[in-house]
Design a binder for these strands. Structure first.
Lengths: 238, 238
DNA sequence: CGTAACATTGATTTCTGTCAATCCGAGTGG
DNA sequence: CCACTCGGATTGACAGAAATCAATGTTACG
């Protein structure tokens, strides 16, 4: 379970003891339905959530109901670990597909970080990875055109899913709608549709009914100006 | 000095001892010239930097030389604290104006976090604030039009500068060019110019030669769909 | 078999970028 | 003290990208 979490951190140096402590901190494993809002903006959060199966997202709402995703989470991600020090969330957290999550009560985490200082570094590192992705999203939105944004989005998903064994490298399941992609890329779903066709026509990527297939990885990376360095694939939290 | 840093965290509970330890960790205070690149992407970072005076930014470069700011830092900000656990940076860090910075060597910080576990939480919290700002920038870029983006940008700067006593609430010094604003907002400098005129004409904001003056705070906030909750003005890092 | 959610397409509008001058202000050297 | 220069700032004309509006098509599912 937490093995998933660790999988993303290659040269991790968690001791057996620490791993067990982390496992033991899980209070509950729940299954949430698709399109379910788990935490609302402004809520005081009393637990942290590790995504075990399915897709979840974090988003903010604009004045006229448009929604902007600020993160998309794959299995192995702590979805709201930042709420642990922050206590309150500045955005909503919801599932996209049906999802299985493991819950860590705040007090348990507190105790955990008291007894295992090194673990704090691991958790801190984890939230910093999220921040690195945020930055990449800022770049994507600020400097890429529609095609680049969508290409970048799929590049990131491919690499992240591959990190947890959910992508073969050129094929992966991603149960999102074109509207979801639009909300992640700052576009309209209509335009995403056009872009997807363009990517398909140019032999870079196929995406239909939640199944993505990378036809030309190098071309896709070039279109999205994608470089996976920010995902710290070989990063080490000390 | 580090008092500045603390100023942003209202209900901080740093003990005298911790404060002194933090102060003592400063190895050096330096002055950097304007438009000076301090750290380049990919570099291994061996120290962390607290901005004491001036403006600094973090940015990423696109293929054809366009630059996207991912953060703008005001006095009291740790500019690259995230590099402490991450070790490597995924972006450049540079000054905008002439800047005074305090330097914390990596080993000193390591020792500090060993001896003062609670301080780790403070530092972690600090990087989470950065992440919250990142998210807000994602929203700004993904869902706001040009006018909204620029308005939001100035709203954020006003609140953040006010937090460290550098804005009266409706007037502040912000030595950036229109190109800088463009790079922060994902626009061209030409368009920023048009937007600034529009904001001036509509009586919301004046900005010239680095001097900003908020003429109608409520209107500006509305234009930028701005809500300062994400800055955790009264937040507490436990 | 019917319905609802999602995808696709075309026509049109709006916004922002691009290109190309021109202007202005601050600092420089004569 | 004045011409000069250079980095912004400003403006207008135009092009291009994406949003919007409005159908229509498709698929999954009860």
């Amino acid at each position: 379970m937490t093995a998933l979490f660790l999988q993303r951190r290659r040269r991790d140096r968690l001791s057996e003891q620490e791993k067990q402590a982390l496992e033991a901190a899980v209070a509950e494993v729940r299954v949430l339905p698709a399109r379910h809002v788990m935490v609302r903006q402004g809520e005081t959060v009393t637990r942290s959530t590790l995504l075990v199966e399915g897709l979840m997202c974090r988003y903010m709402d604009g004045r006229d109901g448009q929604r902007q995703l600020v993160a998309l989470h794959v299995p192995g991600d702590f979805v709201d670990l930042h709420a642990f020090p922050l206590e309150q969330l500045d955005h909503d957290v919801a599932t996209i597909s049906r999802a299985k999550v493991a819950t860590f009560p705040r007090e348990t985490l507190l105790a955990l970080t008291r007894d295992h200082p090194h673990l704090v570094r691991m958790l801190w590192f984890s939230t910093l990875l999220d921040a690195a992705m945020h930055r990449e999203w800022i770049f994507r939105l600020g400097r890429l055109g529609a095609t680049g944004r969508v290409a970048h989005f799929f590049c990131e998903m491919n690499v992240r899913l591959a990190m947890v064994g959910l992508s073969s490298g050129n094929r992966f399941h991603l149960p999102v709608t074109q509207s979801d992609i639009a909300e992640a890329c700052g576009l309209t779903s209509v335009h995403v549709n056009r872009v997807l066709r363009q990517l398909r026509d140019s032999g870079q990527l196929e995406f239909q009914r939640g199944e993505a297939r990378v036809l030309d990885w190098e071309a896709l990376k070039a279109t999205g100006e994608f470089d996976d360095a920010y995902l710290y694939v070989d990063g080490t939290p000390d």
